[in-house]
Amino acid sequence: MPKLIRNRQIVEDARPVVILEEGETAATIALPEGGAIVPLAVWQARRDELLAHGCFGVWLAGDQEPRDLADDLAQLQTIAIHFPKFADGRGYSLATLLRSRFGYRGELRAIGEVLRDQFNYLVRCGFDALQPAEGRYTDTQLLAALGSIADFSEPYQVSAAVPDPLFRRVRRAA
């Protein structure tokens, strides 16, 4: 079962991430029983069905617009952002916008190529769930990876999870 880190704890989450393959459409793709994380297009096409279904989330690609979810945030328990490559940093801005601009408070999950060496930045940008690709880390490695979340204890700048810059948080001696 896929493991992920949620609020700094390792948990299991069986919900698969639905991807639209070539030839499949948002309107017709079969949704798994027991919930899933679906592409934005599926949510836009089938919101009533998904809301009735319950346990689901929506995922965004790096080139998608978080504003498209702005009116739906209260109904969404999970929004995932997909990192096609760990070095593709668009997801950090999307997360920041969802949290800081649109006020999203539900689970914000990083999926795709998610690696421990980016955990600290991901969490500071508002992700509270980190889902490395299945099989990337052994259980022991994932446990050790929790430590990376706290790589930097007092960041200089504002981010979704750090509402004030260092110069407003503490009194710095001249």
Binding site: Y156, Q157, S159
Partner: peptide
């Protein structure tokens, strides 16, 4: 320098 050091949003720019 301080603002840009480990800025979490801008560490993986194009």
């Amino acid at each position: 320098r301080q603002w840009s050091t480990f800025h979490p949003e801008f560490a993986y720019l194009p």
